[in-house]
Amino acid sequence: MTKTGMIDFRGVNKWFGALNVLKDITLSVEPREVVVVCGPSGSGKSTLIRCVNGLEAIKDGDLVVDGQRLGDPATNMTQLRTEIGFVFQSFNLYPHKTALENVTLAPIHVRKTPRAEAEKAGRELLAKVGLADKVNAYPAQLSGGQQQRVAIARCLGMRPKIMLFDEPTSALDPEMISEVLDVMVAVAEEGMTMMVVTHEMGFARKVAQRVVFMDAGAIVESGTPDEFFSHPRTDRSRAFLSKILRH
């Protein structure tokens, strides 16, 4: 209770109808920390990170993000969301806007950055994710991996303090996964606070300080990637790892 992290779950519960999708979650993510969340499907890991930027509301407990308590009338959720990037499994790029327009939309309208300045920054970000030549392409003209890199650039355009990734590579063809992971590694190495829902163990070993394993809405185990992958402590995590390692 004494130290406050960048993201602080304290006894958080959430129900979908009768289903207890988050059970008494307590978890603190420090500034610049990268936490990988994994677990079987339906374990609540997506719901967990969707709560952080208020895409899902929590039922009880406390969730404090960047010093602001969610659900508190004093917390301006729209303002807080500008500090949190969110990368979706299905990219969710705006199909009627070009790659550059996708990146500059929020900086121009939310941050009120002058258009020329936003476009300059947008081009730099697209170059950084390896898409300098796709600035004027529409999402439909890009591959899945390229779309997801634009989506990451779109988040970075807001210069967020936190980035959340919801299975960012699950919808991708295998040969495109590494180009997205490479960008995520680069973001992590610049010191971004990140929560990443993924089963990509290579990524977890490379940049994560912690792996959190969830099952049936509860955090079952948490430890360094090395501890978790090499010496899982619970039967459920062993069963889970044996399934994802088989492939």
Binding site: I84, A106, V110, M158
Partner: peptide, 15 residues
């Protein structure tokens, strides 16, 4: 997903 993406980047309701 489109609304969620817009929401997540801090766009106001009207935006």
């Amino acid at each position: 997903g489109q609304v969620e993406a817009a929401l997540a980047s801090g766009l106001s309701r009207w935006q």
